[in-house]
Design a protein around this nucleic acid. Sequence first.
DNA 1: CTATTTTATGGCTGTACAGCCATAAAGTCA
DNA 2: TGACTTTATGGCTGTACAGCCATAAAATAG
Lengths: 83, 83
Amino acid sequence: MKQFIRSSKALGSVIKRVRKAKNIGQTAVGSAFKIDQGTVSSIENGAPGTRLETVFRILAALDLEMIIQPRKVDKKNLKKEEW
Amino acid sequence: MKQFIRSSKALGSVIKRVRKAKNIGQTAVGSAFKIDQGTVSSIENGAPGTRLETVFRILAALDLEMIIQPRKVDKKNLKKEEW
DNA sequence: CTATTTTATGGCTGTACAGCCATAAAGTCA
DNA sequence: TGACTTTATGGCTGTACAGCCATAAAATAG
């Protein structure tokens, strides 16, 4: 169920889906890391101006982490040299 | 050479490394997507307040994409249910 | 359907980013 | 070593986020 995220909207969708799968409310996610419920809402809906710090706090609250990788490549044939 | 990113600093490091590997300057990366060279610099150095939109524009400029996944799990044993 | 919980919006405000410009600092190369 | 390129910093400014509070709207439970 891996997703390739290239926009704020896509990121918000993933966050929302994971949060719901864990049965946690926006308020609960936020309170642990001092993020306003309204802020969590806007992020999940793809607010493009969200601050990076806020995103990482939410990822932490949901026990998630980020990975960056090259686009449009077959991972099986990925060469180290490209990095 | 996959990296698990949990902070702005870590993200900045990856961006910087990839950009250098591609022999592109901060100015070049920025100009294509209207990002100030100084902004690229601060992001690479881990500015926590960077806007999400800006991050995605840089990832696009470097032909990168993001993935979100659960923390601290052996990917070989990852269960779909956790998502 | 009603009551309750959860999520989406909006106002207000302090703070800070990002663009733009300039320049110092650091790195590169002949 | 000197000339040139690249990166780091800082000032100035317009814009907008995020916290806080309140509330409407939507979803869920009973």
